[in-house]
């Protein structure tokens, strides 16, 4: 039932949209080796109309994953390298005075795209970071008093180095909350690392990727994913999990209602990606760390070293109805 078997289980020809999703997963898996779980989560995140934060040390394939996602889903792609001197205008664009026309003309910034990679988002100043905010929440930007709609679908995939590195501006909680999921890629295992070293150049492979679906198809998939059946015992389960994050002595700040809503959306999308007949407890558990991890504030005296461990602790203390 795990990701590896997904292709064989596909109902061939019966559900073309769904089949596209399986192909996307296969292609991504061939580029980012051994990270099937993260790929499934990333796809779920996009299907749930959520923005994605990938957090890890440099060189672990964060950018690669974002680019691959854009290509395989047929989305227009732009990349902004966040630096400490990045200005908001560098993200959203500026109005330039055209002498020949005698008027201002808006030069759209890189944000006017379907999938934007905000690379090393925590290197920019809070001011630049907040320019991204409006776009993520409202799907529009305002320049010189004019509000401009962003293309749809619109995704932000941000990457960041862990906050304890030098010269970073950690994202505030309010901004972290806008990301549906936060993923950590982690080191590849021995076998996969060997394939990386001996295999072809990943970057050229990236260029050879064909899109498996159109943006319109993707929006249709999002629609279907949000309609996945969720049984009432599992609504109870989500409520129990949320309650546990609020009541556990290990956690200072638990999940907000927005976090709970995010959990439902992510679990539904995950169930869709995994071809489940409805949301299963496994779907909730699979997305829980990614959805809840960056929204929880661990207690000062907690014995859990990472948010992943903390999330696992919550899962281990709540019974599945």
């Amino acid at each position: 039932m795990q990701g590896g078997n997904t292709l064989e289980q596909l109902p061939t020809g019966k559900d073309a949209d769904r089949a596209a999703l399986g192909r996307a997963r296969e292609v991504l898996g061939s580029i980012i080796l051994g990270k099937d779980k993260q790929i499934g989560l990333a796809l779920s995140c996009l299907l749930a109309r959520g923005h994605l934060l990938i957090e890890d040390l440099p060189g672990l394939g964060k950018t690669m994953l974002a680019q691959a996602l854009a290509r395989v889903l047929g989305l227009s792609f732009r990349r902004i390298q966040f630096t400490s001197d990045l200005l908001p205008a560098d993200i959203v664009g500026v109005s330039v005075f055209r002498q020949n026309k005698g008027e201002f003309e808006f030069q759209p910034g890189p944000i006017f795209t379907q999938l934007i990679l905000a690379d090393e988002v925590n290197r920019a100043t809070p001011k630049a970071q907040s320019a991204l905010l409006e776009a993520m929440e409202e799907y529009q930007v305002t320049v010189d008093g004019n509000t401009r709609q962003l293309p749809r679908p619109f995704f932000v995939v941000a990457t960041q180095n862990p906050a304890d590195q030098i010269g970073t501006f950690p994202l505030p909680e309010s901004q972290l909350d806008r990301f549906l999921m936060r993923l950590e890629l982690g080191y590849p295992n021995e076998e996969n690392e060997r394939m990386l070293l001996t295999g072809g150049d990943r970057r050229s492979m990236l260029n050879e990727i064909d899109a498996v679906c159109t943006p319109a198809q993707l929006q249709k998939l999002q629609e279907i994913a949000s309609g996945v059946h969720m049984s009432s015992p599992l609504v109870d389960y989500i409520q129990a999990l949320v309650r546990q994050t609020r009541e556990s002595p290990e956690i200072d700040i638990g999940l907000s209602p927005r976090g709970a809503i995010a959990l439902v959306a992510a679990a539904k999308a995950h169930a869709y990606v995994e071809h489940h007949s409805g949301v299963y407890p496994d779907d909730i558990q699979a997305v829980f760390a990614a959805v809840a991890g960056h929204r929880l504030q661990p207690a000062g005296n907690t014995s859990y070293r990472s948010s992943a461990e903390l999330c696992q602790h919550v899962l281990d203390t709540v019974a599945i109805p």
Binding site: P233, Y280, P281, D282, L315, D316, T317, V318, A319, I320
Partner: peptide, 22 residues
């Protein structure tokens, strides 16, 4: 759920808290 409990009873292995059926 009742049937599943019967199944767990038959296997003789207790299911732990938070353990999914899979």
């Amino acid at each position: 759920a009742v049937l599943y409990q019967r199944f767990i009873h038959k296997t003789g292995v207790t299911i732990s808290i938070g353990e999914t059926p899979a």
